[in-house]
Amino acid sequence: MKRLIPFLLLSLSVFSFAQEENETSRNFGTDSTTVAEIVPVDPKFKLDTIDYLTAKNPMRASLYSAILPGMGQLYNKKWWKAPLVWGVLGTGVGFIVHYNNQYKEYRGYYLDKLYGVPLENPTLQQMSLENIANIQDDRKRTRDYAIALTALAYILNIVDASVDAHLFGIKKDPDLSFQPTVIENNYTLDLALGMGVNYKF
């Protein structure tokens, strides 16, 4: 009997503690609004900085720019970039066509001069075969450079569309700013234009 009394007292204390814990979890654990009232959330604290509702698909933007340059920029709503892409690629294609035509023209002059066919242009008629060959090689080299630069611009157009799509949904951080600023030289007191980065803690 003496052993039963401490056992009953211990059981009652455990039961009362369990009941207290159930009441606490019933008041605070199941109701999200009550938890939000108990734990205040700082309005400056952002759990997510990406707006998934307006996010763009990088694969789709890259595909659009690969099929038709500038379409990826339009898909990302960067309207001002599309005319730049068209202008750069159009200029590159223009240079390719121009220097390719000149290369073919001087290639024809070189072959005519090689086989002894008289040229209609008196200036070219007086030039040596080596000089005409040098002009032909120069036009070919310039055409190849234009092809390489135009291909590079085409690849950059795809990369730009993909990067813009990746960064499209990210909101601007008001505490971080990147803007032009005037810098003064401490020795000569001359002013120069530079870029400044400001970060607020």
Rank of each mutant, 00 (worst) to 15 (best):
110 Y>R: 06
43 P>M: 02
82 A>H: 03
4 L>D: 11
130 E>L: 10
114 L>E: 04
123 T>A: 06
175 D>C: 03
87 G>H: 09
2 K>E: 14
167 L>Y: 11
16 S>T: 06
101 N>F: 02
25 S>L: 04
47 L>H: 00
127 M>L: 13
117 V>N: 04
136 Q>A: 12
140 K>C: 05
26 R>G: 01
171 K>R: 11
107 R>P: 01
189 L>C: 00
40 P>V: 00
120 E>P: 03
131 N>F: 00
184 E>V: 12
181 T>N: 09
10 L>T: 01
152 L>C: 15
43 P>N: 02
181 T>S: 15
124 L>A: 01
180 P>I: 07
115 Y>D: 11
176 L>S: 11
37 E>M: 03
83 P>A: 00
193 L>M: 14
100 N>K: 03
56 K>Q: 12
146 A>P: 03
150 T>E: 11
44 K>A: 15
76 N>R: 10
177 S>R: 10
57 N>L: 00
95 F>I: 11
126 Q>V: 05
143 R>G: 15
101 N>G: 14
21 E>F: 02
148 A>L: 13
12 L>G: 10
186 N>E: 15
3 R>Y: 00
57 N>W: 06
9 L>F: 07
94 G>M: 05
9 L>C: 11
193 L>A: 03
20 E>G: 05
154 Y>I: 06
76 N>W: 14
53 L>S: 09
160 D>T: 10
141 R>V: 04
61 A>K: 02
29 G>N: 14
162 S>Q: 02
118 P>H: 01
197 V>S: 03
159 V>N: 12
183 I>G: 11
60 R>G: 05
8 L>Y: 08
93 V>W: 07
92 G>I: 04
42 D>A: 00
101 N>Q: 15
142 T>N: 10
194 G>A: 07
156 L>R: 05
105 E>I: 06
8 L>E: 08
122 P>V: 09
46 K>S: 03
139 R>Q: 13
149 L>S: 13
38 I>F: 15
21 E>D: 11
81 K>F: 05
137 D>W: 12
29 G>W: 08
114 L>H: 11
181 T>Q: 06
68 L>W: 08
122 P>E: 07
78 K>I: 02
138 D>Y: 01
184 E>W: 01
11 S>M: 08
22 N>P: 00
66 A>E: 01
2 K>W: 01
118 P>A: 14
25 S>C: 06
76 N>Y: 09
64 Y>I: 04
147 I>C: 09
68 L>K: 13
3 R>A: 05
185 N>M: 08
61 A>Y: 04
134 N>E: 13
